[in-house]
């Protein structure tokens, strides 16, 4: 085959791939807009039932994940401090430990790791649940009750997951900093309150705002992408695994993308 044909194939493949990804992103954004419109249209309908679904979602995503998040946060906090002490002692800058904790945990690792845990635990569950409901005709049953499935299923999950992710990120940051402090105190006998006051000085208002914006974006992304793929399962049960897998990958990539984008917007 002539070299020109290979070039056409490669460029064609890349172009198609990019267009497909952009299309999917557009569809997800469209899904978000439809969700918002639905939420506004039925804002006064079915509040009690919605509240129950919303509470169930926060309980599942937030309360039940808390244990896992705390364990991971403690370990990560300790790890950052151990590495920080090991590296900073070499250059004699151990006093920037609080600054390191702020940059690594509060700004970057905390939100991203929490998002990963939520994607693995709740995102997959949501995608599978929606997929099964679509395949088994449960969505149509809900529609035939005069209930908009987006309103009944998507909105409480969207709000619940977002709120749970925000809460979990707050917990992750606090617990990992506590873990870091304990490690620092145990390893190099840095007084707890010295690190605490250093941290209070290092953390800026912008860090709190960035953390909140990231949490909001991650929560919305996870809920939206997982529900989007779940609703698109079609009518075959064999479509569920690939859709769930696609949802996980899309969630992960979008979360990393938003993490970089938000950090660049606020810190550059």
């Amino acid at each position: 085959m002539p070299a020109g044909n290979y070039l056409h194939m490669v460029t064609g493949f890349c172009g198609r791939w990019i267009i497909q990804k952009l299309n999917r992103l557009g569809e997800i954004l469209g899904f978000f807009v439809v969700c918002l419109k639905t939420a506004l249209r039925y804002r006064t309908t079915g509040q009690r039932l919605m509240a129950r679904t919303f509470i169930q979602q926060i309980y599942f995503t937030g309360v039940q994940s808390l244990e896992l998040i705390c364990i991971i946060a403690l370990l990560v906090g300790g790890l950052v401090v151990i590495q920080g002490i090991a590296q900073l002692t070499r250059v004699g800058s151990r006093d920037v430990l609080a600054s390191l904790l702020t940059v690594v945990i509060i700004r970057e690792v905390g939100p991203l790791l929490t998002a990963v845990v939520v994607i693995l635990r709740s995102g997959s569950a949501i995608a599978i649940e929606m997929g099964y409901m679509t395949v088994l005709g449960e969505i149509e049953s809900i529609e035939m009750q005069g209930i908009d499935p987006l309103h009944f299923l998507a909105i409480p999950r969207l709000v619940g997951v977002t709120l749970a992710v925000i809460s979990l990120i707050v917990f992750f940051n606090v617990v990992s900093i506590f873990g870091g402090f304990v490690s620092a105190w145990a390893l190099v006998d840095i007084p707890f309150w010295a690190l605490f006051s250093d941290l209070a000085r290092e953390v800026d208002g912008i860090d709190i705002i960035v953390g909140s914006v990231k949490a909001l974006m991650f929560g919305l992304t996870i809920a939206l992408v997982c529900m989007f793929h779940g609703f698109r399962t079609g009518d075959a049960i064999t479509n569920i695994p690939p859709q769930v897998s696609r949802a996980m990958v899309d969630c992960f990539i979008l979360c990393i993308f938003f993490n970089v984008l938000i950090s660049a917007l606020f810190y550059l």
Partner: peptide, 16 residues
């Protein structure tokens, strides 16, 4: 839809 009672062969109950 609330005024229509629809029972088709795939109609199912919500499993959870």
């Amino acid at each position: 839809r609330r005024r229509i009672g629809f029972v088709h062969r795939e109609t199912s109950l919500i499993s959870n």
